[in-house]
């Protein structure tokens, strides 16, 4: 193994990327873990906001619908970087005001919670649109039939709407998940130690820019490709029992 690396002239890079302290590989992996944690949290929060947002847009009153339209339009027109800064300051300000009002000291907000809150609100706007489209694609007769049987609204959602819309929503949600993983890189700018910031610190202290940035790129790419596999699998599962569009054997 070492001979092969030396033959390729990569021995130095391998040493820099080693997992134990003289190398920086451990830091990169820790950064990746932080990134994934935030991406998972933000994606989950986005799904919850998106589900309620989609229901509000489809079945809500005129005021709620207008408010949700403003939410999705504004979030999708302003750069994520600017939103992250605004939401970050607003969030920390609100929490500190609440804490001082209740007689506590100022609290330090953990980077992970702040990142999930900020990216979750951004993801929610996109998820609202994806899920709204997916719910609209469900044949209305199915939902009407559930209502005609007197199913409560929540049970209709759980048993009819969500399973039926899954196959329409998966491609859009897969895209959203990829956006979530890549948007975590933006948290580097507010100083949160996720993969991109760890990479930059490692690179600037060893001056081996290409080694570290390429390694981080490979890690992101691995996550992307692996997620593609998983989502392909989920989509096949969500489509089970549906006739294939390509024709051929049912």
């Amino acid at each position: 193994m070492t001979n092969v690396l030396e033959l390729l002239g990569l021995a130095e890079s391998a040493e820099l990327l080693a997992l134990s302290p003289p190398g920086w590989g451990g830091n990169l992996l820790r950064g990746l873990l932080n990134s994934l944690q935030i991406a998972f949290g933000a994606f989950g929060m986005g799904l919850i906001i998106g589900l309620f947002g989609a229901y509000g847009k489809l079945y809500g009153g005129p005021v709620l619908r207008d408010l949700l339209a403003i939410y999705t339009t504004v979030i999708r027109a302003v750069p994520e970087l600017v939103l992250i800064l605004i939401l970050y300051y607003v969030g920390t300000d609100l929490i500190n005001k609440a804490a001082t009002a209740m007689g506590y000291d100022r609290v330090e907000i953990s980077g992970i919670v702040a990142g999930i809150w900020v990216l979750g609100i951004v993801q929610g706007a996109y998820a609202t649109e994806v899920l709204r489209g997916a719910i609209k694609a469900v044949p209305p007769g199915q939902i009407e039939a559930a209502r005609a049987y007197g199913m409560p609204a929540f049970m209709t959602m759980r048993r009819v709407t969500i399973p039926a819309m899954m196959s329409f929503a998966t491609p859009g949600l897969a895209n959203l998940w990829l956006i979530a993983t890549k948007d975590t890189a933006l948290l580097a700018i507010v100083g949160f130690a996720e993969l991109t910031l760890e990479t930059r610190q490692a690179a600037s202290s060893t001056r081996a820019y290409f080694t570290f940035f390429l390694a981080a790129g490979a890690l992101y790419l691995l996550v992307t490709l692996f997620s593609g596999l998983i989502f392909g699998w989920i989509e096949r599962w969500a489509r089970r029992g549906q006739p294939s569009l390509k024709g051929g054997q049912p």
């Binding site: 990829l178 890549k182 948007d183 975590t184 890189a185 933006l186 580097a188 700018i189 991109t196 990479t199 930059r200 820019y209 290409f210 940035f213 390429l214 981080a216 790129g217 992101y220 790419l221 992307t224 490709l225």
Partner: peptide, 10 residues
């Protein structure tokens, strides 16, 4: 598959 910020910094 990779974040733009990483590409810019690379």
């Amino acid at each position: 598959g990779t974040p733009l910020l990483l590409q810019i910094w690379l």
